[in-house]
């Protein structure tokens, strides 16, 4: 059984970070789905997904991001991703995710992008 964990962390700038750890595949996607579901039900729409400890993501895992992005953006929020290893980024890149999502080097950079948008 593959291991996957999601840690939710509230930053002080009204942004919530999901820290992904381990192997995100068909078995473990429900864990991530539940985490998103919970944030959305609490009306928290500014989300950074920190992928520092994410070792693999399958298409089903990517599908979770697709499933929530429209609802989040409809509420003026966004899902941004940060700290991907090259291997994980390659999967996101191959499936064209950089065209749809902000994928940045660090969590702070992602937070800055949220800030820029709220200034505008």
């Amino acid at each position: 059984m593959s291991d996957f964990k999601v840690m939710v962390r509230e930053r002080n700038d009204n942004i919530h970070t999901l820290e992904l750890k381990g192997y995100l595949d068909a078995h473990t996607t429900p864990v991530l789905e539940d985490a998103f579901q919970k944030l959305l039900s609490e009306k928290k729409y500014r989300i950074i997904v920190n992928c520092k400890d994410l070792s693999y993501i399958s298409s089903a895992g990517l599908g979770v991001f697709m499933a929530f992005i429209e609802d989040v953006r409809a509420e003026e929020g966004d899902i941004k991703m940060s700290d991907m290893t090259p291997k994980v980024f390659n999967i996101f890149d191959l499936l064209g995710f950089p065209m749809l999502y902000d994928i940045v080097k660090t969590e702070d950079e992602a937070a800055k992008k949220f800030a820029e948008k709220s200034v505008r």
Binding site: T29, L62, G63, F65, M66, E70, L95
Partner: peptide, 14 residues
């Protein structure tokens, strides 16, 4: 569920 998530992730539609 698994099919739909995979479809969404792989081709980028919802």
């Amino acid at each position: 569920k698994m099919f739909s998530l995979t479809l969404m992730g792989q081709v980028g539609t919802n």
